[in-house]
Design a protein around this nucleic acid. Structure first.
Lengths: 220, 220
DNA sequence: TCATTTCTTGAGTGATCGTTCAAGAAAGAC
DNA sequence: GTCTTTCTTGAACGATCACTCAAGAAATGA
């Protein structure tokens, strides 16, 4: 409640701290917490499981990370900066065309989501569902993260339409919502055991919705 | 533990029971439990919330429904028999063509999932995610339900290929996985606040992946 | 009326939840 | 060395978790 910015950095750039030094690797503990939240979700992960996986006692956890909710938000933030969590933003930045970006996003999602080196699917999507009423705050936090994804897609598609890459009849908002839905579905399918091959096929099929120059969407 | 089939029917067809009659409407209580599980998921819904919503005391709940897990399974079973829960099976049965069935399923999902008369999305998909290790049984139960959906799609598409409706180059399994992913994504999007219009547009775009006669999938 | 059967009630089970706190331990500052 | 600061430890906190049980209440069969 003090409002102090505790500023507990990774330890890399910090010079000799005053008091007793932390007895554990903060980044490693955060990574352990990430795996747990990723696999089991926010609510189903208990502080007891967290302390066990992180190799610390509750007091240390609360001293270093605040409370469970704050720790989770830090986990999500770190995930968003990791290669696995940031692949969509990277593709949108690096690919010159909107179609190229979406195609790359779908194909990379197909490879990343079922990768056995981490829990299946997308942390943001997986940990999001089924957070209780008590944790409305966390629920809204994650929903906005996913919706931000959609807004980013729409912006890129709208730019593509201005540039002439996308036909004028195409609906950038509808396309963005469609791709967002497909990606969320792929994450869920990965949780249900879908293989990389199945997801790659799904990604290819999803791209068939890309508007051709001759005809717009099937409607009207 | 007795192994007795308690056979607690709805009360409609049962004649005068021996002991004290049940003081509440079992179907209404089940419906209340359904809404709660649908909205909050399996784990996040507590027995205390259930008893409050159902208007009964814990003893009555355990006498009438077994335990929380058994109640949830009965909720899912009843949901599967309801119009909202069975619309996919109905469409697959009634529509003469596979494409017609999938198109109808997508469009109905777009209308049903965001319907404000019940919690958003699909109960099976929503309540599924984030069940803990303790409830592996429930987790597997729901995963199999969703995967059964996929198998049904594949069977229908394979039949369509035999009948010549679907080109020989098309991959029924990949198509089934694709549509299953889209539908799961639409459910999630509905949870995130997607409107019926947005989901309808998504459904239309999703249908663009249907293989044309001239060309197969975009691959190779 | 009375015994039998079934349901309801309300208190209560041990376990686990997220969280806190005083006491002890390990560092720099003086 | 002592002071100050910070972290660790282990034992708790009250709340809630899913669940149970004895006692009372309401029905039928006699």
């Amino acid at each position: 409640m003090g409002g102090m910015a505790t500023d507990t950095g990774t330890g890399a750039g910090r010079r000799a701290a005053r008091g007793r030094p932390r007895g554990f690797d903060r980044d490693a503990a955060l990574a352990a917490a990430t795996l747990l939240f990723w696999r089991r979700g926010y609510e189903a992960t208990s502080v007891g499981e967290l302390t066990e996986a992180m190799g610390i006692r509750p007091g240390s956890l609360y001293a270093a990370f605040g409370d469970k909710k704050t720790l989770f938000k830090e986990v999500v933030a770190a995930y968003g900066r990791s290669p696995v969590g940031a692949f969509m933003a990277v593709a949108l930045e690096e690919e010159p065309t909107a179609r190229g970006a979406l195609a790359r996003i779908l194909r990379e999602a197909a490879a990343i989501y079922p990768d056995p080196s981490h829990p299946a699917g997308c942390l943001t999507i997986c940990a999001a569902t089924n957070v209780g009423v008590e944790d409305e705050e966390v629920e809204a936090f994650l929903r906005e993260l996913r919706n931000a994804n959609l807004v980013t897609f729409e912006a890129r598609l709208r730019a593509a339409q201005r540039d002439g890459e996308l036909p004028g009849e195409a609906d950038p908002r509808a396309l963005a919502a469609y791709f967002a839905a497909v990606i969320q579905g792929m994450s869920q399918r990965a949780r249900d055991g879908a293989t990389a091959a199945e997801l790659a096929a799904t990604a290819d099929l999803a791209l068939a919705a890309w508007p051709s120059r001759a005809a717009g969407t099937a409607s009207s």
